[in-house]
Amino acid sequence: MSNITLNVQGMTCGHCVNSVEGAVQNLGAAAKVDLPNGSVTIDYDETKVSLEAIKEAIEDQGYDVV
């Protein structure tokens, strides 16, 4: 298992949290959004999902991974 924290811009509310966490969970990973800090901590199995796929799933929800 790998663990990474990404900085994500554009998250402002509970809906944002649900959107990002749900998108990552749909890939088989676990996400925990820290809304005040604008970050997302992700636990994932790199043999099952790539970091690029996770970033793309977050960006598909309308947020920017920086």
Score class of each variant (00 low, 15 high):
residue 57 A to C: 07
residue 5 T to Y: 12
residue 35 L to D: 06
residue 11 M to H: 13
residue 46 E to P: 08
residue 51 L to W: 09
residue 11 M to R: 10
residue 1 M to P: 11
residue 7 N to S: 06
residue 29 A to V: 01
residue 25 Q to P: 00
residue 63 Y to M: 04
residue 49 V to R: 07
residue 3 N to I: 06
residue 29 A to G: 05
residue 15 H to T: 14
residue 54 I to G: 06
residue 38 G to C: 11
residue 54 I to M: 10
residue 18 N to Y: 03
residue 7 N to T: 05
residue 22 G to R: 12
residue 23 A to K: 08
residue 25 Q to R: 15
residue 18 N to D: 09
residue 46 E to Y: 12
residue 7 N to D: 05
residue 10 G to V: 01
residue 18 N to H: 12
residue 30 A to R: 00
residue 40 V to E: 12
residue 66 V to R: 15
residue 56 E to H: 09
residue 20 V to W: 14
residue 4 I to H: 00
residue 49 V to F: 08
residue 13 C to Y: 13
residue 48 K to E: 14
residue 18 N to K: 12
residue 65 V to N: 01
residue 33 V to T: 03
residue 12 T to W: 09
residue 34 D to P: 13
residue 31 A to Y: 12
residue 61 Q to N: 04
residue 7 N to C: 01
residue 51 L to E: 15
residue 57 A to S: 13
residue 33 V to K: 13
residue 63 Y to F: 15
residue 55 K to Y: 04
residue 28 G to C: 05
residue 63 Y to C: 06
residue 8 V to G: 08
residue 63 Y to K: 06
residue 61 Q to P: 03
residue 10 G to H: 08
residue 63 Y to G: 14
residue 50 S to W: 01
residue 38 G to I: 02
residue 13 C to S: 08
residue 28 G to V: 01
residue 18 N to V: 13
residue 20 V to T: 09
residue 15 H to S: 07
residue 14 G to H: 10
residue 6 L to I: 00
residue 37 N to E: 15
residue 38 G to Y: 07
residue 62 G to W: 03
residue 62 G to E: 01
residue 20 V to Y: 10
residue 54 I to L: 12
residue 17 V to Q: 03
residue 56 E to C: 01
residue 34 D to M: 03
residue 23 A to V: 04
residue 35 L to G: 00
residue 20 V to K: 10
residue 13 C to N: 04
residue 1 M to E: 05
residue 57 A to L: 04
residue 52 E to G: 04
residue 28 G to Q: 02
residue 57 A to T: 01
residue 58 I to T: 04
residue 36 P to L: 09
residue 49 V to S: 08
residue 27 L to T: 01
residue 30 A to P: 03
residue 1 M to S: 15
residue 7 N to G: 00
residue 40 V to N: 10
residue 27 L to N: 02
residue 20 V to A: 12
residue 23 A to M: 13
residue 36 P to T: 11
residue 53 A to M: 05
residue 47 T to S: 14
residue 24 V to Q: 03
residue 36 P to Q: 10
residue 47 T to Y: 06
residue 33 V to N: 02
residue 41 T to R: 15
residue 9 Q to E: 15
residue 29 A to W: 14
residue 42 I to F: 06
residue 16 C to N: 14
residue 30 A to G: 02
residue 63 Y to H: 08
residue 47 T to I: 03
residue 55 K to D: 04
residue 44 Y to H: 04
residue 18 N to L: 11
residue 21 E to C: 00
residue 31 A to N: 10
residue 42 I to H: 01
residue 4 I to N: 03
residue 6 L to H: 12
residue 24 V to S: 04
residue 60 D to R: 07
residue 37 N to S: 14
residue 9 Q to S: 10
residue 53 A to Q: 15
residue 26 N to Q: 13
residue 39 S to F: 06
residue 17 V to W: 13
residue 34 D to F: 06
residue 54 I to C: 10
residue 23 A to Q: 09
residue 41 T to L: 00
residue 18 N to R: 08
residue 59 E to R: 06
residue 60 D to W: 02
